[in-house]
Design a protein around this nucleic acid. Sequence first.
DNA 1: CTCATAGTACGACCGCCATCGAAGCACCTC
DNA 2: GAGGTGCTTCGATGGCGGTCGTACTATGAG
Lengths: 116, 116
Amino acid sequence: MARPRAAARIVEHPDVSEVSLQQLLEALADPVRRMVVSQLARADEDMSCGTFQAPVSLSTLTHHFNVLREAGVIRQYYLGTAKMNTLRTDEMEQRFPGLLSAVLAASVAEGEAGAV
Amino acid sequence: MARPRAAARIVEHPDVSEVSLQQLLEALADPVRRMVVSQLARADEDMSCGTFQAPVSLSTLTHHFNVLREAGVIRQYYLGTAKMNTLRTDEMEQRFPGLLSAVLAASVAEGEAGAV
DNA sequence: CTCATAGTACGACCGCCATCGAAGCACCTC
DNA sequence: GAGGTGCTTCGATGGCGGTCGTACTATGAG
């Protein structure tokens, strides 16, 4: 039967208008989270949670994804067993013009982003 | 006589090239420090440490000034008994293009900066 | 010299957050 | 179904940073 089982895997996202500067800066102030964001920025496609390079355990990484999502930085959705991630670049640009892009540029310049 | 007594009150500042993105973001991630930076940005002249509006004690404020100075955000110098503060706007713009200005703009937009 | 003013240094406290491992749950493949 | 993969949840831990008050130093004014 087509029971509403799929409803169990819906991910909640804040509207960017609900995100505070404080939240965003706290989110970006962590080096691991910045690695995630950088890798996402340089990727051609959306990435699943398991494909990131980071020097922490998987459960810690889950925590960081939550923080980034609640700060409006990333959007997540399920695709089979995988949980995919995208940057909310355009929305963040509207909410905090120039901020995310400046951080990303600086991050790249410093060689962050877990070089391949 | 103009003896070199003033030498005792020289403040050390890092070169902006020595400042890391991590340092800067940590510095800007604190709301009190952002209040300081915002007030400095909207001021016409340099401000002495005692003239800032902040919901913390004076000794705590001293701590925040140190963090901001070590992150290359402000420059400090003595003027009589007062210790003055300036934003290193141009240098930061060179080091992290668009970053400080974006944070300041967002801060203003959110009504931070301890309204007068 | 003496006092007042401006800020610093120090030590203590406390709360928060990044971290982990282990156990659990949802979905896909056989 | 049964098993496996992929990610989450939970509770515990540890360390760092923001906060304060008090004692202290340095400068300027009288």
